[in-house]
Every structure is written in C-alpha cells, then in structure tokens.
Design a binder for these strands. Structure first.
Lengths: 193, 193
DNA sequence: GGACAATTCGGAGAACGTCTCCGTATGGTC
DNA sequence: GACCATACGGAGACGTTCTCCGAATTGTCC
C-alpha cells in the first residue's frame, strides 16, 4: 500500500500533510474534475505548491494515490463476484460494471487511465495493468463456458469500459449512454453474428 | 459553406489570412494534435494572435472550419454507401467506419466532438448533429431489415464511434484496438443475446 | 490619383496554470 | 539544548489563452 521501497519513516508533519492533501484532493477533484488547478488545490489545502509537488510530483501520482484508497473496495467487489458462483457471463458483466464505476470516480479520469495503459511509466500503469489482468480472468472464464466470444481480448474490454466512461464524463445531458452503451458492449448493434 | 449570415464581403487581406491560417492549422494540428498552442500556430502562420482569434474566436471554431473542408468527402461517402444497394448491415458498418476515420482526422479530436454532442452552443454541434442524424438513418434502415437490434439508438452509436476513436488516439503502442473494438461494437462480447 | 472611413492587423500585456528553487522553519536525535 | 536532516512555502521563471488598441491596409468616392 505505502509504496515499493520502504525507505525511512517520514517526518510527522510530512505524513500529516500528505494525508491532508489527499483528503482535500478527493473533494477537489470530485468538484472540479481531474484537470483542476493544482496550485488552487494546494492553496485550498493550506500548503504551498512546493509541498504539493514534493509529495506528488505529477498529477498522475496524486491520482494514483487517490485511487489506491479505492483498491480495497474494488478488490472486495472482485472477490464477491468470484465467489458468487454466478454465471460467468453475469460475473464478467458485473466486473465490467464495477470497473465503470471505478473509472468515473472523478470527472475526466478516463483520460489519464487510458494513457497509463500504453505508457507503463505512469504511476497509474500498475493499477491499470492489474485490472486488465482481472478483466482477462473473468473473460477467460466466460469464454471457457462458451458465454463470451473467443476473439475478444481482455485488454480491449478494459479499454472499452474506459471509453464508455469517457462518454459518460462531463455530465451527459440526458441519460442516454449509461445503459445504452453498456448493453451495446455486451451484445453489439448487430442481430446476427 | 461560408456561414449562416452572408454579411458583406470581407477585405482581401482578411480572406487571404483566413485561408492561410486554415492551411497552416491543418498541418499544425496534424503534427501537434488539437491541443497544440494557438499562439504558436499563429506565429507559424506569420500572423499575430489577435488575427487568429478574430477569425476563429475559439479552438472549436477553428476545428469546425477545418472539418467543414472534409464535409464534402464524408457526404460523398455517405451517398456512395446509400446508393450502393448493399445489405443495410454492411451499409451501417461502412458508415460507422467512415465516421471513425473522420473522427481521427487529428489527434485528440474526439474530445471536442463529444463535448459538442451535449453542448449545442459549440461550433461543432451542427456538424455532429448532422452526422448523428445520418447514423440514425442507416441504423433505422438496418433495423427495418431486421439486421440491427431495435433497442439501439443512433446517438449512442455515434458516441460509441467517438469513444473507439478516443481509444485509438494518442498512438496506441500495439495494434490492439483498431479491429478489436470495431468488431466489439458490432457483435459485443457475449455469445448469446 | 488622392483622401477619407471602415476594416483589419499585430503585438504588448493581463490573467491563469505549471513547476522549481532556495532561504527558512520544523522535527527527531544525541 | 544543540545539531542536522528533512520538510515547508512562496517568489518567480516559463508557457498558454485571450484582449485591447494604436497603426496599417483596403476599398470607395470624387
């Protein structure tokens, strides 16, 4: 959870600031989207820009820390679906829905997530890679049960969920996409294969 | 083509600048994506920022003017598909592919396009609305022939094409999405409806 | 061809965002 | 209590957006 290299324990004021910045960032990104001004966020947290950037060198690093707090929730959801013993297709569907919720935690989040899929240097890359793998597991199970097409790849499904979340973003006026695009992903627009 | 209200004929230097800016912008956006610096674009075109902003008050206005140049091409494509007398499902598929090519004319283009779908104040809104309508026509034809699911909406298909184009953007490392996501849109991941 | 008025140009500059650097303050330790 | 490493905070360099206005260009009318 804390990071790759343990290092020495940080100073108490540093730890306090880090936690506080995360708290404020959670609210700030919820309200302003992931592209909100970082200096403004720092001011709102009552710290200087330097302090913010020292703890989180990039916007993606800050996002990764925020998403790490949700990892547990999503992992729990994954295990619940796994042990649910439900139809593999229903399980995959449920997992994709959970991913969709995760990817819309903040407005504009799908953009850095997609970028992280192709740039492994991003702080978000590891998280994304993990969920791609989970998606592959659910997909493979569904395929083995003959409930999912064999030419579909897990990575593409993950990207498709991000894409749908991207459409949802920025507050769609009417409630068009939420259900519509979800079922489109499951069944496609065509009647016959 | 020229605009809604005719107004009086612009001065020759104004017309020349406008055309020249469009020429340079076409190259500039191709190279730097739609988020490239507008002041840098103005400098590259050899005009002041004021001149650029007078002709195209917003980035979207500039994009709309650039896309207008491609309207003819896409309309021609639409008519070719229409009169092709092909299977309505193949026709819809062809139209969606054409839309996908259009939406990836420049890197990052899907973002303003999606925004324009929900904000009719955008200069891109009219263009988008027109293509949504065309998509609905092809979709309805396919539905009437029993080749497309009846619960699919044209607007959602249009958004889905934008979403796939969005995934493609920013140069995907491997050739994952292009075909994969396209077929996903047509048939979905599920084997049974 | 010259003068006048409308139009357009160009760039200085205000406003905002990102990110860095370094003098100062704070925390931990002996 | 003193010392050193660590962390803080904000001034400021830099890039981008967009505006405003004095200067220049164009079209027209005599």
């Amino acid at each position: 959870m804390t990071g790759t290299t343990a290092g020495r324990r940080p100073r108490t004021d540093a730890a306090r600031n880090r936690t506080h910045i995360l708290d404020v960032a959670e609210r700030y990104f919820t309200e302003h989207g992931v592209t909100g001004s970082l200096d403004a966020l720092a001011k709102q947290a009552g710290v200087g820009p330097g302090t913010l950037y020292r703890h989180f060198p990039t916007r993606d690093a800050l996002l990764a820390a925020l998403l790490a707090a949700r990892d547990e929730e999503l992992i729990t959801r994954r295990d619940a679906i796994r042990t649910g013993g439900t139809d593999p297709a229903v399980a995959l569907d449920g997992w994709l829905a959970a991913l969709g919720t995760w990817a819309t935690a903040f407005d504009g989040l799908p953009d850095p997530l997609r970028a992280a899929v192709t740039e492994q240097s991003s702080p978000l890359a590891l998280t994304c890679q993990g969920y791609v793998t989970t998606t592959e597991e659910f997909l493979t199970a569904a395929q083995d049960a003959g409930r999912a097409r064999s030419d579909v790849r897990g990575r593409d499904l993950f990207l498709a969920v991000l894409a749908i979340s991207w459409v949802r973003g920025a507050a769609m006026a009417d409630a068009s996409s939420p259900a519509g695009l979800g079922s489109l992903l499951r069944t496609g627009w065509s009647t016959t294969a």
